[in-house]
Design a protein around this nucleic acid. Structure first.
Lengths: 214, 214
DNA sequence: CATGCATGTTACTTGCGGTAACACGAGTGT
DNA sequence: ACACTCGTGTTACCGCAAGTAACATGCATG
């Protein structure tokens, strides 16, 4: 029948797609985000046009690749965020999960955060805005949902939650990016410092003697 | 004489360089970060090799361009940060200055934040890490210095200040990026919400009825 | 056995970063 | 007056990567 035919062929195509994505993954992990389509095709043991048949263009491949990792990371973060513990503990656990992930696979992280790098004219036919750090956006929205669900923030709670979701995620991201490059302290110290910031230590800190307060 | 000759020629070269940068600015403002060297040269009324003689490669031109805007923005931020007012007011003013800048010139902003996009193989001879968001790094370091100078944060103050500097800048950046794309609220509302977050409202918020606290 | 149809290939076009080699114009020493 | 240098500009080219067209092949089904 037609439908069974379709499903069987689609399964085959999906398997192939997954194989190609895994090959692309290996190459990106090795060469960074500037991996060429030729290199990816070679790693998969095939040639370019097949990649294009499966993913349309380089942006499509990268988007598919990014979504795999993004989904995986988001699952870990959700788990940390939903653990049975008090608020501060969960925040620290979530921060630590994120930092642990980017520490374990910096190449993947760089790819996810700067997916457009290395593209030649490929970016011309593709909207740049859609690409720029979709991971950050998704994390921000996710966190916003959690915040709004669980916290009582008054009448403007919804807007506050979204702003905070994106803001906190950005804080985590920028601090993590800087930390990953300079390694100025341990992961635990970084987590504590960020949680302290979120817990209002900035507002509570006293002015330094000899000058106006910051 | 030799020295006067040199200085005079160098002045001429500097003027030329500035003209080229302004032309490049116009093109980047129009075409986004994927502006080609050919287009920039054409806008300047010349051809490619001259650009390369002045800036070495595309990365050099982009770095020079980015530094101009980065310097300008940092000056504005410093002014807001140094104004004679209390801490909260200054924080809000700084946030507002940044958001106003990215709102006024989103193209410039996108260029500064994603300077590597649009490069073909040019990224190969250039270290990607050096390029990725140097503006964020500079803002983070700057803020860290201010925090450490003005706040009394105890024995670990130096480390805390740097973490917070980069963290706060990242918060501002991510929230601003999201806000610029979706425009979910006014600038003033965004500023207030972010300042509230920094002022500990996350820690102070009560749990929502009917579920465990976030 | 012929007909689709997915999968694979080679060979090409286009466009960009970057470079080599040449051309012109002005100031300079003899 | 003449060659020399030096900065500024050009055209023409190379290499490389994205993306495409056209052709080949294996396998199911009428």
């Amino acid at each position: 029948m037609d439908t069974t035919q379709r499903t069987e062929q689609q399964r085959s195509a999906d398997r192939r797609r997954r194989e190609l994505l895994e090959a692309a993954d290996r190459v990106v992990l090795r060469d960074g985000p500037q991996a060429s389509m030729n290199a990816i095709a070679a790693e998969a043991g095939i040639t370019k046009p097949i990649l294009y048949r499966h993913f349309g263009d380089k942006g499509g491949l990268y988007a598919a690749l990014a979504q795999r990792h993004t989904d995986a990371l988001l699952d870990s973060l959700r788990a940390a965020l939903d653990a049975p513990a008090d608020r501060r503990e969960r925040v620290e656990s979530t921060l630590d999960t994120y930092l642990g992930a980017i520490e374990a696979r910096p190449q993947v992280y760089r790819f996810l955060m700067h997916p457009a790098e290395g593209g030649q004219s490929g970016e011309q036919g593709f909207d740049v805005g859609k690409h720029s750090a979709p991971l950050l956006r998704r994390m921000g929205e996710e966190l916003a949902t959690v915040i709004e669900e669980r916290l009582d923030l008054g009448p403007e709670g919804q807007r506050l939650a979204r702003v905070w979701g994106h803001g906190i995620v950005g804080m985590m991201h920028a601090a993590g990016d800087w930390w990953l490059g300079e390694r100025p302290c341990s992961r635990a110290e970084l987590v504590r410092s960020l949680a302290d910031l979120l817990w209002g230590r900035l507002a509570a800190a006293g002015d330094r003697v000899g000058g106006p307060g910051f």
